[in-house]
Write a protein that binds this DNA or RNA. Structure first.
Lengths: 168, 168
DNA sequence: TCTTGTGACTATGAATTTCATAGCAATATG
DNA sequence: CATATTGCTATGAAATTCATAGTCACAAGA
């Protein structure tokens, strides 16, 4: 099995470098995105990230070893697992939100518009992109947020799932 | 020169995936950290990230191509450049801060303590780890923050620079 | 019973990337 | 004229990635 490099852990006090030994990898971040999007099964994660089975298996294994993810049995005979975020994994949410905000703002052509819209459940209005709700000004937490995909983005994801299923 | 993979750009509407095509790489993030830490020269960046010259050269080149970084001549004869963040690059600050917060909280043993402490210049008190100042509750911006390294972490960086200089 | 399907992977091997070590080019300095 | 400085480039071995294919354990239908 392919091991993922665990560069310089504990070689530095820098918290950014420390964090990057865990999540400093494209596939890992995409896997985390899927877990936050409530895709808990191997196939869903593979389909939506577009990774090969090894890529996904290796990331999930490393995420589990790093305490970000737990495997939960949902079926014995045959043994099947679902992947869920631990507290440490869930705490990564603000990073993903910041990355999303940056991506929406700087990695899109204007005519593409947003892909996700979050509602701040505390005030019931749009939360916007920032760490505080654009409607009520309160700092937002994951449990107070309801994310909704735009129809276009939802269609993209549906199509990816169909294509994945069709390919086997 | 080693090209860095530019996977799936524009293949998806997902802002996280889009962002990851730009910054989904450990070295890239460490280079950005150095630019935010006001290390503007190739050698400083190389020394503090611990990358090989090719790694750093390739990331800086890609960051420039992606509009994150500009090269600024600070000396002709011989021609020398400094690397600076563009607006797009500077906008990445919240992501790094979120990553730092997560790293400080989840990638350290308790006895290690913090590596950086930020002061919120608006209220003059500690800003803490979150996106809003822990002292005054206001959302923090990069220009209102003064970061200070703990002595231990500062020593670590000084030592890295010395070691780098000594090795050549 | 035999076949097909499902979910979660593992195996293989070619193509890429990374890492470590060296080296170079164009001055500046002594 | 020799050495130092800065910012890279070159080389080749080692590791990683990617695409394609296959496996394994069981379930369900023909």
């Amino acid at each position: 099995m392919a091991k993922i490099k665990d560069n310089t852990t504990d070689q530095t006090l820098c918290p950014v470098a420390r964090a990057e030994t865990v999540v400093g990898d494209r596939w890992t971040v995409l896997v985390l995105r899927e877990l936050f999007a409530r895709s808990h099964r191997f196939e869903e994660i593979q389909a939506q990230t577009g990774g090969t089975p090894q890529m996904i298996a290796a990331r999930l294994k490393k995420l589990e070893a790093d305490g970000m993810v737990t495997r939960r049995v949902y079926n014995k005979h045959p043994l099947r697992h679902e992947y869920h975020l631990t507290e440490k994994g869930a705490a990564f949410f603000p990073v993903l939100m910041a990355l999303r905000a940056w991506g929406e703002t700087w990695c899109k052509s204007p005519r593409e518009g947003r892909s996700m819209n979050y509602t701040h459940l505390v005030c019931g209005k749009p939360a916007g992109l920032g760490p505080v709700c654009e409607s009520c000004g309160e700092p937002v937490h994951r449990e107070d947020m309801a994310g909704e995909r735009t129809p276009k983005y939802q269609r993209e994801r549906d199509a990816r799932w169909e294509a994945f299923k069709a390919a086997r």
